[in-house]
């Protein structure tokens, strides 16, 4: 009985004083220290790891005598081991350990504080920017977003612990709703940037201009340009280029969607290659066919798609 009581007391003490530090769902630090505190060396190593994980500037550290300091995000924290003095941006407090909550606040890091747990975001959105056909999201950390297209809106949903404007969104929470009559066509991910390409399902052109690839002299101004020639049953569409900084992506996305549908319907290969005769930022493709009589069927199917 006595042993059981002793065990319960010890367990209780652990629950009361233990402290876990998470980045998203990832446990980064766990100890039986006084709630929400950690040793100086653990703190320094955590900040170094966190800045690396989030692709933020690394902290600088140093020491003068027994005074150790860390400079990060425009703020300085320091700790004098012998005198147990702790400094946050010039303000001193007597403490043997790092008061994490004070420091995170000083560093202007958003966090969620629960009983014996602190959770930092694993994604920090710095900006959501929308133009006509593109939504750009710049961020630090890892991509923890999903997108749901609903009628006349696109919802950005958190899949992790995502911060924006100092607020943290937990998994499943809606971060933002963007009103638009367009749909999501593609999501392109680069380190620190998610670019969502939107398109309107109704195509701007409904007219199809079919021309023999070899005989093209002057490209007509309007209509979907369907170039064709003899070949090995494939469709070729133009790729986009970094030189256009995204302005050619919506047309590329529409071209690819139409080409995929035609390729599936007529069992053709789909090739992406910037052919000179394919005009830039224009709905167009080249179809190479082993049986040239199929072009009229393809033209009819394309007209149906554009309707």
């Amino acid at each position: 009985m006595r042993a059981a009581t002793f065990f319960l007391v010890i367990c209780g003490a652990f629950v009361c004083f233990s402290f876990d530090l998470y980045v998203g769902n990832k446990l980064m630090y766990s100890s039986a220290d006084i709630e929400n505190t950690m040793s100086w060396s653990s703190f320094v190593s955590f900040i170094e790891n966190y800045s690396r994980m989030m692709r933020l500037d690394s902290p600088s550290t140093g020491e003068v005598g027994d005074f150790q300091y860390l400079v990060w995000n425009g703020h300085t924290v320091g700790f004098a081991k012998d005198s147990n003095v702790f400094v946050v941006d010039g303000a001193t407090t007597k403490s043997k350990v790092v008061p994490l909550v004070d420091i995170l606040s000083a560093f202007q890091l958003p966090f969620i504080q629960e009983q014996s747990k602190i959770v930092l975001p694993d994604m920090m959105i710095t900006k959501i920017f929308q133009t006509d056909d593109i939504i750009d999201i710049t961020y630090n950390g890892s991509n923890a977003l999903s997108f749901a297209g609903r009628q006349n809106q696109i919802e950005i949903i958190s899949n992790g612990f995502v911060s924006i404007d100092n607020q943290i969104y937990q998994p499943g929470q809606s971060i933002r709703v963007i009103p638009t009559d367009k749909k999501i066509d593609q999501k392109i991910e680069m380190p620190g940037l998610i670019r969502v390409i939107l398109f309107k399902e109704t195509f701007t052109t409904k007219e199809v201009v079919a021309l023999k690839f070899e005989q093209i002299m002057q490209i007509p101004e309007n209509g979907f340009l369907l170039l064709y020639s003899d070949g090995d049953d494939r469709i070729i569409i133009r790729s986009y280029s970094p030189d256009f900084e995204g302005s050619d992506w919506p047309v590329y996305a529409q071209n690819k969607k139409i080409a995929q549908q035609i390729a599936a319907q007529f069992n053709l290969k789909l090739e992406i290659c910037p052919l000179y005769n394919l005009p830039i930022e224009r709905l167009c493709m080249v179809v190479l066919l082993s049986d040239s009589s199929r072009i009229s069927q393809i033209e009819d199917y394309l007209k149906e798609l554009l309707q």
């Binding site: 392109i188 494939r234 790729s239 970094p242 030189d243 390729a263 789909l270 090739e271 290659c273």
Partner: peptide
């Protein structure tokens, strides 16, 4: 114009 990584990080021909 430049050729982007995203297209040629995989083989740019599919299907058929």
């Amino acid at each position: 114009y430049g050729f982007p990584r995203q297209i040629w990080s995989s083989w740019p021909i599919e299907g058929g």
